[in-house]
Computed example of a mutant assay.
Amino acid sequence: MKKLAYAAALSVLAVSAAQAGPIERACLQSDRSNGSRSLCGCIQDAANLTLTGADQRFAAKFFRDPHQAQVVRQSDNTSHEAFWQRYKRFGTTAEAFCG
């Protein structure tokens, strides 16, 4: 019986992880101590409201390499500038929803 319950719990976790968006997955995998499932899910919800899928995949890389955010923010590339405006809106939304 314990094996069956364990297998069921693993399948639920696998489905949850598969349904998680790129921001939530990056948040959960980060080494930040406050990366709880509920907080990371909330941040993903804010991302879903403010960022495209491509933006989310790009922003998720900042969890692994925070310096990359600074590089993008300071870039003269017009697509980076436009992304940064959307990313700032995402940050404000996430702070209001999840902070």
Rank of each mutant, 00 (worst) to 15 (best):
M1D: 13
K2D: 15
K2A: 14
K3P: 00
L4G: 06
A5K: 05
Y6S: 10
Y6P: 00
Y6C: 04
A7E: 09
A7Y: 08
A8L: 12
A8P: 00
A8K: 12
A9V: 10
S11W: 12
L13V: 03
L13W: 13
A14Y: 02
S16P: 00
A17E: 07
Q19L: 14
A20I: 04
G21A: 11
G21Y: 08
P22F: 13
P22Q: 12
I23Q: 05
R25C: 05
R25T: 10
R25W: 01
R25A: 12
C27W: 00
C27T: 05
L28M: 11
Q29D: 09
S30D: 01
D31H: 06
D31K: 14
N34S: 04
G35E: 08
G35M: 01
R37N: 05
R37Q: 10
S38P: 00
S38F: 02
L39Q: 11
L39S: 04
L39C: 01
C40T: 01
G41Y: 02
C42M: 02
C42L: 04
I43R: 13
Q44N: 07
D45M: 12
D45G: 12
A46C: 06
A47W: 01
L49Q: 14
L49G: 08
L51M: 02
T52D: 02
T52P: 03
G53V: 06
D55F: 03
D55T: 09
Q56H: 07
Q56D: 07
A60P: 03
K61T: 10
K61I: 02
F62Q: 03
F62C: 05
F63Q: 06
F63T: 02
R64N: 06
R64V: 01
D65P: 01
H67Q: 09
H67P: 00
V71R: 13
V72G: 05
V72F: 12
R73I: 08
R73H: 10
Q74E: 14
Q74N: 15
Q74F: 09
S75T: 00
D76M: 05
N77V: 07
N77W: 13
N77S: 11
S79G: 09
S79K: 15
S79V: 01
E81K: 15
A82F: 10
A82P: 03
A82C: 04
A82V: 10
F83H: 06
W84A: 07
Q85E: 14
Q85V: 14
R86G: 06
R86N: 11
Y87N: 08
Y87T: 01
Y87H: 10
K88N: 12
F90T: 07
F90Q: 08
F90Y: 15
G91F: 01
T92H: 06
T92P: 00
E95T: 11
A96G: 06
F97W: 11
C98S: 01
C98F: 02
C98K: 07
C98Y: 06
G99Y: 10
